[in-house]
Write a protein that binds this DNA or RNA. Structure first.
Lengths: 129, 129
DNA sequence: CGGCATCCCTAGCGATACTG
DNA sequence: CAGTATCGCTAGGGATGCCG
């Protein structure tokens, strides 16, 4: 990760530890499903089954797995209502919201450059058949 | 992808086609290696071997694979110097630069919330041993 | 309904080696 | 030096089934 904003007031060991932690977190978060889940949650509170409907293409397993990971990293909050049948709701925490904003940026980017990308792909295929 | 900014002046078929394309692009881009490569490139022009050094942990194969993908989508430009030994340079295009900005956002986010995340992880582990 | 565990299979990835 | 190809292995991820 390029940004070296730690060098002040931290000794070298802490710097490298922080950086490896940063890489680890980045690897956790920077995957398709995690980002789509965060984006799907947005400002809303959704239950497990609703999320499954929103994300589309995600399997039961991948959803739980990523939800656990996001919860562990404190990006989402998980509240269980002890009713029957059980009702589990997920919502973005403040850190989660903050990240969502940047993901929104990625989505906007995708739509903004959709045409250019499609064109580029055609040029690419046409170049070497 | 939540953003529905297409419904005007496009018929339904085009809308769904655009959306599936958007999802496809998103799935291409939203992976660890691609994002790290873009971030590593930044404003600079780097050659293959330099990139390998910058990204850290990436294998020869993954690097080429992702570079091809990014080139195909028009995020990077690849220029071959016909010297011996060959020299291949990669640089971000304008779309690539635009995406990089949002990725910078993700990196900043990671550093910004590093402490909170670490704390959250400890709480998480402590909760159910 | 939501979560965990199990089985199973594919594709992602690393390692190695060969060409221009 | 950069890229392609081949070979293995492991881990990702789907499907199913059983509990709270």
């Amino acid at each position: 990760m390029g940004t070296k904003q730690f060098s002040d007031s931290l000794d070298q060991a802490d710097v490298t530890r922080a950086d490896s932690l940063a890489r680890e977190i980045f690897s956790d978060i920077a995957n398709k499903w995690a980002l789509l889940i965060i984006e799907a949650l947005g400002e809303r509170t959704l239950r497990f089954s609703e999320l499954r409907g929103e994300v589309d293409g995600i399997s039961h397993k991948m959803l739980t797995q990523n939800l656990r990971m996001l919860e562990r990293n404190g990006l989402i909050e998980r509240t269980v209502h002890a009713t029957v049948p059980p009702r589990v709701e997920y919502t973005l925490t403040e850190p989660g919201q903050a990240l969502r904003v940047t993901i929104d940026g990625m989505c906007d980017w995708t739509h903004r450059y959709l045409g250019d990308i499609e064109a580029s792909r055609h040029r690419f295929e046409a170049r070497k058949p």
